[in-house]
Write a protein that binds this DNA or RNA. Structure first.
Lengths: 171, 171
DNA sequence: CTGATTTATCTTGACGTCGAGATACTCTAA
DNA sequence: TTAGAGTATCTCGACGTCAAGATAAATCAG
């Protein structure tokens, strides 16, 4: 019955250590969730590297990408932006300040609400985010290279199920 | 052939927007990797909440857990600790300072290397991390509740494959 | 032994984020 | 019309992290 055992990774080491120290605990959830956390960490680093080429920081890309996704005229309020990027309002003010200083976005007064502001992508900002996005996807395709299409779909479905409760709770 | 379509999540929205704006790009990698990143973010928040009960911050748990996993006498050098927790040396100095101030760890001189230090869990630190770990796992089991054992094993295997290249590259 | 290199830890300053609160404007309903 | 509640954005101080550099001790080559 030769089950082909996959090679060990750091999480296997981690789990082994916990089982030794706390045999009373069921550490099975770590098999999935610790790997998700660690992989996300590595992905962040990889993203940063990919963006380096374009002189972009990850946080800059996050904002520019949200504007780019919105479609012409590439405008969103700071409020919408912080919902898209999951940061607080103070953070977004700061981000927009710096992106504007770099000439990648502009702040325009909202014509319909004098409290409001619209953040708009400049042509330079659009070019940067388009180039960075293409590179990011190329790089990510490499990372997924080893996975069959079937496995990718399977894991995407499972991850969707895991994320959904969180997406729902914030209403 | 009634394929049961899973409900949409935020990443589906994201992907749809990119396909509309950039039909020239193959955004399939996001199906997996964006979900990994977002799930990890949500997991971080959930972890923080679970630790709140014990008056612990996530970063505190990370250090205490590394020491706890090491087994009696629950000692590790700052160097080993920063390899375990993936932070820089300055960060670890700061963390140990604050944990020592709270009485959860102690700094001892390394008897074999006068440059060195050993960070040791106090009994109070051990109690805290043991209680927090048990709660964390209970909570994580809930999050995974909807998944069959088979799905959990499948996804764990796939994630291990995705993480391995990163685990290897840092030698 | 001696000088050069490496290793282990700590120090410092800059940075990005958060959370609480301030300010200005809009909306609702009496 | 107006008081009060709600909303949009910005300000500010505290915090944790990082990167670069400082210090001190160990190790290695000659």
């Amino acid at each position: 019955m030769g089950t082909l055992e996959p090679m060990e990774d750091e999480v296997d080491r981690l789990i082994q250590a916990w089982r030794r120290e706390r045999p009373d605990l069921d550490v099975a959830p770590m098999e999935v969730l610790s790997r998700v956390s660690r992989l996300a960490r590595h992905l962040d680093r990889a993203r940063s590297q990919a963006f380096d080429t374009h002189g972009l920081e990850s946080w800059e890309f996050d904002v520019l990408a949200a504007l780019r996704r919105a479609g012409t005229p590439y405008q969103l309020s700071p409020g919408k932006l912080l919902k898209e990027t999951l940061v607080t309002s103070g953070t977004m003010t700061n981000r927009v300040d710096r992106l504007a200083a770099r000439g990648l976005v502009e702040r325009l007064p909202d014509p319909h609400d004098r409290r409001g502001v619209l953040v708009q992508l400049t042509p330079a900002g659009r070019d940067k985010v388009d180039a960075a996005m293409a590179d990011l996807l190329t790089h990510e395709r490499t990372l997924l290279g080893g996975l069959s299409d079937g496995d990718q779909q399977k894991i995407a479905r499972v991850l969707r199920e895991l994320v959904r409760p969180f997406d729902l709770e914030k209403h």
